[in-house]
């Protein structure tokens, strides 16, 4: 029998969940999946048990359950609102939808689903958006996005390794330094600028 008082709203589970989403058959829309695949190769066995990888076409309601079990979630997606090759990193928080679900479910709505449905939300959630040049039919990334992904993956690899090392102490470099610009790269973390 159902209870209608399930309001645990716990914070944080364990491990890091990386979700790269987009359609790899639509050019740069496949940037998110490409980053996840690349990082999985770079980190290999080091990530076992600490990082979970997921490649999706789009955020779907069933992602709410694995997200609710993670301590940290990083969404990686292509964006048409940024200049080609530009990367923007910002923190996400659960957003109460004014109306309801549509064809597209945003990561913020997914977090609301986690909180309201599964009673838990990750302690921190990040969105890494990559400016796309072309989303035309085709399974190749544009040159500028491919180059960006290489640089981005090195940064993310470094940060993920830091997190893995410090996971037991629950330290988060991003929490300590929410505004950070990494010199010589297009990576930019801007907590205040939540949306493009």
């Amino acid at each position: 029998m159902y209870r209608n008082d399930l309001k645990r709203h716990a914070v944080g589970g364990a491990g890091t969940l990386l979700i790269g989403y987009g359609n790899p058959l639509c050019g740069d829309d496949g940037a998110g999946p490409a980053v996840v695949q690349r990082l999985e190769r770079l980190l290999g066995r080091q990530a076992d048990g600490a990082i979970t990888w997921r490649i999706e076409r789009q955020p779907l309601p069933e992602l709410a359950e694995p997200i609710s079990r993670a301590r940290r979630v990083i969404f990686i997606d292509a964006s048409v609102c940024l200049a080609p090759g530009q990367v923007q990193v910002h923190r996400l928080r659960a957003q109460d939808p004014e109306y309801c679900l549509g064809h597209h479910l945003s990561p913020e709505q997914l977090l609301a689903l986690c909180r309201e449905g599964f009673g838990a939300c990750p302690a921190e959630v990040w969105m890494v958006a990559i400016g796309a040049q072309s989303m035309a039919l085709g399974d190749e990334l544009s040159g500028v996005v491919a180059q960006t992904i290489e640089r981005l993956c090195r940064h993310l690899q470094y940060r993920l390794q830091l997190w893995m090392r410090h996971e037991s102490r629950r330290l988060s470099e991003m929490e300590a330094s929410p505004r950070l610009r990494l010199t010589g790269t297009p990576l930019e973390m801007d907590e205040a600028n939540g949306k493009c």
Binding site: Y2, R3, N4, L6, K7, P61, E62, A64, E65, D96, P97, Y99, C100, L101, Q109, A112, L113, E116, G117, F118, G119
Partner: peptide, 17 residues
Amino acid sequence: NLFGLIRRQPEFACDGI
């Protein structure tokens, strides 16, 4: 809608998901 459902009957909605 689904979000309303989750607020009213979270376990039911999660069972569907």
